[in-house]
């Protein structure tokens, strides 16, 4: 049971970092990224590519940390003039392009067969690293959120034109937010590859992005603690419902389908009745006279 708790803590921390990463982009800056799985995949594939070509582990780790924000910049630069809805679709498409490239080009990281990556065989070490990643990500996200940068990102989220009238270049700040967010996601992508010991395209489907979005929407967009809670809720639901089949006489395939339906139901209920999420974003009032 302790092993399972260690494993679940590890996984929850990874998904919580992904949720924080999306929250910086969407909750704070208003960037609707439907390809949030991409920086995660870049990190994992950095580890996978290094392993596939016989390079040392540290090369993969370093590449993951650098390539995440770098590719983020390459993605946002040509699409910067797009309206948010088109940007959302572009991000979805770019993530799929990356996945399909990895699927179809065997020489990069094994193609359809995927590639084996050296594992962190001690689950406690994996947990410690993932907890550390969450703590660091949370502190960075909180500091951004509470700093003048965070306030400006919120202005950009609400009205880009207004931000521009303040003498700021919204695009520049969107790039900063995206670089930080993608660095976080990419870092846990590297970690995830070394926890599972295998990288292939199937782990980076659109549904994974949907799960991250669900965590953010359920937890509370705009609030870092909220999205961490959202990630915990979604992962806990996924795991806890596994025990239902053993406690009831329901067939396991029925329970499996109910489990997925429950996540969808939670999302619909939250959007309808509490769109601000479980933990509402705190909107501080500033006394402009003082």
């Amino acid at each position: 049971m302790i092993d399972f708790a260690i494993y679940m803590t590890t996984i929850v921390c990874i998904w919580a970092v992904l949720a924080i990463s999306l929250n910086i982009q969407f909750g704070l800056t208003g960037l609707v990224n439907f390809g949030q799985i991409l920086p995660f995949a870049i990190g994992a594939y950095s580890a996978g590519i290094a392993s596939f070509h016989g390079l040392p582990i540290w090369v993969g780790v370093l590449a993951g940390l650098i390539m995440g924000p770098l590719i983020g910049f390459l993605v946002i630069f040509p699409t910067r003039r797009m309206a948010q809805d088109y940007w959302a679709l572009a991000s979805l498409g770019i993530a799929e392009m990356f996945r399909l490239t990895m699927l179809n080009f065997r020489g990069i990281a094994g193609g359809v067969e995927g590639t084996i990556v050296e594992r962190l065989s001690d689950p406690r070490v994996a947990m410690a690293v993932s907890v550390l990643a969450l703590v660091v990500s949370f502190i960075v996200a909180e500091r951004i959120s509470k700093a003048p940068l965070g306030r400006l990102l919120r202005v950009i989220r609400e009205d880009e034109t207004l931000a521009a009238t303040l003498g700021r270049n919204p695009f520049r700040f969107q790039v900063v937010a995206m670089a930080v967010a993608w660095a976080m996601a990419s870092a846990v992508g590297v970690l995830y590859a070394h926890i599972t010991g295998f990288v292939d395209h199937g782990s980076f489907m659109v549904i994974e992005t949907f799960i991250i979005w669900t965590a953010v929407i359920v937890g509370g967009p705009g609030r870092n603690l909220g999205v961490v809670v959202g990630a915990i809720i979604i992962q806990a639901m996924s795991v806890s419902t596994r025990f239902v089949a053993q406690w009831t006489d329901l067939p396991s395939d029925v329970v499996a389908n109910l489990r997925l339906a429950l996540v969808g139901l939670l999302l619909v209920v939250m959007i309808m009745y509490r769109p601000e999420g479980f933990l509402r974003e705190k909107k501080p009032n500033y006394d402009v006279k003082s």
Binding site: I11, T196, F198, D200, G202, S203, M205, I207, E208, R242, A245, S252, D253, V255, A256, R259, L260
Partner: peptide, 9 residues
Amino acid sequence: TEDSEYRLQ
């Protein structure tokens, strides 16, 4: 019996 959803996670 446990469901994998055909997803690694």
